[in-house]
Simulated scan of single mutants.
Amino acid sequence: MKYPNSQNSQAKIIIPDIAVIGAGISGLVCPQRLRPAGYSVVVVEKSCGVGGRVATRRLQGTCADHGACYVQPKGELFSKFVDLLPSRHILEVWTDAGEEFSVSEGISQSTNHSPRYIAPAEMSAIAKFLTPGLDIILNQRVININLTPENTWLLTLETNAQLTTKGIVVAIPAL
């Protein structure tokens, strides 16, 4: 299926099931869970690449991670996901020790002994691991969401391209 990009601003696409807004970790995990349940899903991302807060930016021959500089899994689901990544050479243990700061005690050794992981190539490798087989529209900000008379959702993108879908998942950071 052809999706709109900045060069094709007048395309109107009908998406039968779900549109996910945001291609961070949550926005990429969502279609991985919905597709096995039989839903067709497209992800719409405002940036030029996936990752959200684990994105990597490239400029003048170098790259820089922004947002998360390491991950420390908390919770069963995220821990299981992170456990997959070292064997695929996406993450490696950075340290299992650390320091914490509190106003009352100052700097002290961390009592949390769960390891912290880094992505040696780039943090966006974590997100890229989730993308195979996904339909992702990059460089498109959703600027308007309207309910249609047919009880579907019409998403207007900043290039005036439109998507019609039965459901929406908003997976953007809460600021």
Results as ranks from 00 to 15, higher is better:
Phe81Arg: 07
Gly61Cys: 04
Cys48Lys: 09
Ser6Arg: 14
Asp135Arg: 07
Glu76Leu: 13
Val82Lys: 01
Pro16Cys: 03
Ala23Gln: 03
Ile14His: 11
Thr95Phe: 04
Met123Gly: 07
Thr152Leu: 06
Val44Ile: 15
Pro120Tyr: 00
Leu91Gly: 10
Arg58Gly: 00
Val71Ala: 11
Arg88Asp: 06
Glu92Ser: 08
Ser124Gln: 14
Glu158His: 15
Ser108Ala: 07
Leu147Ser: 10
Leu138Trp: 09
Gly61Val: 04
Val169Leu: 07
Ile25Phe: 15
Arg58Gln: 13
Ile137Ser: 10
Val42His: 02
Ala174Gly: 12
Gln60Ser: 09
Thr131Leu: 09
Ile15Gln: 13
Leu157Trp: 12
Gly106Thr: 04
Ala64Lys: 13
Thr111Arg: 14
Ala161Pro: 10
Ser114Arg: 15
Gly38Trp: 07
Gly133Val: 10
Asp96Trp: 02
Leu155Ala: 05
Ser102Gln: 01
Cys69Ile: 14
Val54Lys: 02
Ile168Met: 05
Leu34His: 05
Leu34Ile: 01
Leu85Tyr: 04
Trp94Ile: 01
Leu138Phe: 15
Val41Trp: 02
Trp94Thr: 01
Leu130Trp: 08
Pro16Leu: 03
Gly52Cys: 11
Ile172His: 04
Arg35Lys: 15
Pro120His: 03
Ser47Met: 09
Ile136Tyr: 03
Ser6Ile: 15
Pro120Gly: 02
Leu134Ile: 10
Lys166Asp: 13
Leu163Cys: 07
Gly22Trp: 14
Arg35Asp: 05
Ala125Trp: 01
Ala37His: 12
Gln10Lys: 12
Ala97Thr: 14
Gly51Tyr: 13
Ile15Lys: 03
Gln109Asp: 05
Ser108Arg: 14
Ala23Arg: 01
Ile21Lys: 06
Gly167Glu: 04
Ile14Ala: 08
Arg141Trp: 00
Gly133Thr: 08
Gly133Trp: 06
Gln32Ser: 14
Asn151Phe: 04
Gly106Ser: 06
Val43Arg: 03
Val20Phe: 08
Leu138Gly: 03
Trp153Cys: 00
Glu105Met: 01
Gly61Trp: 02
Lys2Phe: 05
Leu130Ile: 05
Ser104Cys: 00
Arg116Leu: 05
Ala121Glu: 12
Ala125Lys: 04
Val170Ile: 15
Leu155Met: 05
Ile143Met: 09
Ser108Phe: 03
Thr56His: 02
Glu100Tyr: 00
Trp94Lys: 08
Val43Thr: 13
Ile13His: 04
Ile136Glu: 05
Asn160Trp: 00
Pro86Phe: 02
